[in-house]
Computed example of a mutant assay.
Amino acid sequence: MRMGYTLMTEQAGPVELVRHAAGAEQAGFSFAVSSDHYFPWLAEQGHAPNAWTVLGAVANATSTIDLMTYVTCPIMRYHPAVVAQQAATMQLLSGNRFTLGVGAGENLNEHVVGRGWPPVNIRHEMLAEALQVIHGLFDGGYFNYAGAHFRVDAAKLWDLPSVRTPVAVAVSGEQSVSRFAPLGDAMIAVEPDSDLCSAWDSARGVPSRKIGQLPVCWDTDRAAAVKRAHEQFRWFGGGWKVNAELPDVTSFAAATAYVTPEDVALSIPCGPDPEPILAQIDEYAKAGFTDLALVQIGGDHQDAFLDFAKTTLLPALT
């Protein structure tokens, strides 16, 4: 299983994120994924720079580490024709190291364009159409499209990479797997669910990449790690059916008011010991994931974590 690092735009500014990406490459991570947010989950996280601008700078600051959006929502804040152009440009800038990761989005980030927040079945319809648009533009030449949710009028990508940009799609259950497996090259999920992995490969007919994500809070002081994980990541336990619907940081603060530090520490490895992290990594491997991106909680604690990953965690995995 390839190990990756998460550039979490919600907890660090753009200059720091580029530096962290270079550090992740030097530490030995195989790939780096970037969130794409307009808001942080909680005010305590404190950041939300533009992910695509950051990734362009990261492509220039690195040379070997693969790059990916985890994930971009191409249904409201971005038109899919624009996402296709951004992804093709990133593939060129990175020397064919880029994967476009997409999902159906969260109200937190998409409400800013003032179009309202559709129910999940409509969002899935929109994402399916968006993927048709993106693939049509990746095919080259002029492209027209008239769907229930999107129109494209004589669009063309004038700068296409020699290697087609792979597309990974976020799924959460049988319905989304059956809809999106034919439209994606790889699967994205955030729980070590073996049923999702087997269903994805079965729907595609061939095995493909299955990319997970695991939050950790490494620190030499476990109590400090638990405190920080609770402060900045207590939203994580709500589950995506809830997280996708809440509109702002105030809502997430209210929804997690009764989550305790002990609750967070039960699901997120905290402290200096690598063993709890290794145990959760093993769960993803056993479930069938081919790639796993770690999230180190705390924007000011990335350098120490990267040193720990280089000297202790990654060698333990190999």
Results as ranks from 00 to 15, higher is better:
L137Q: 03
A128P: 07
H230T: 01
T311S: 15
A186T: 12
E110M: 12
N50H: 09
H111C: 09
A316W: 08
F98T: 01
N50Q: 07
Y284L: 12
Y38D: 07
L266C: 12
K156V: 05
E174D: 14
D221R: 06
M68R: 15
C270F: 05
H47T: 01
D153T: 09
A32N: 09
P118V: 04
T99K: 10
G298D: 15
Y70E: 05
G114Y: 08
R2I: 02
V113F: 09
H230E: 07
I277N: 15
V33Y: 05
S30D: 13
E191G: 00
W240K: 08
M1N: 11
V133S: 04
L160Q: 09
L157M: 07
M68V: 12
P182N: 08
H111T: 04
L266T: 14
H301I: 05
P192H: 13
P272Q: 10
P14F: 02
M8Y: 04
K310A: 15
P215L: 00
G105N: 08
N60A: 14
S34A: 14
E262D: 15
L160A: 05
H79W: 01
K227D: 15
V71E: 09
N121D: 03
V152A: 00
A199R: 15
D248G: 11
A81N: 13
V133D: 08
S162N: 14
L314P: 14
Q132W: 06
L246M: 10
F39I: 03
D193I: 07
G298Q: 14
A155R: 00
T290Q: 09
D139A: 13
M76K: 02
P161H: 08
E262C: 01
E275F: 06
V163C: 10
Y5N: 03
E231M: 09
T9G: 01
E275P: 05
G141N: 06
V206G: 02
L313C: 14
I281E: 03
V259S: 12
G95Y: 10
L183F: 02
V177C: 08
H79D: 14
L214H: 14
T9F: 05
V169A: 14
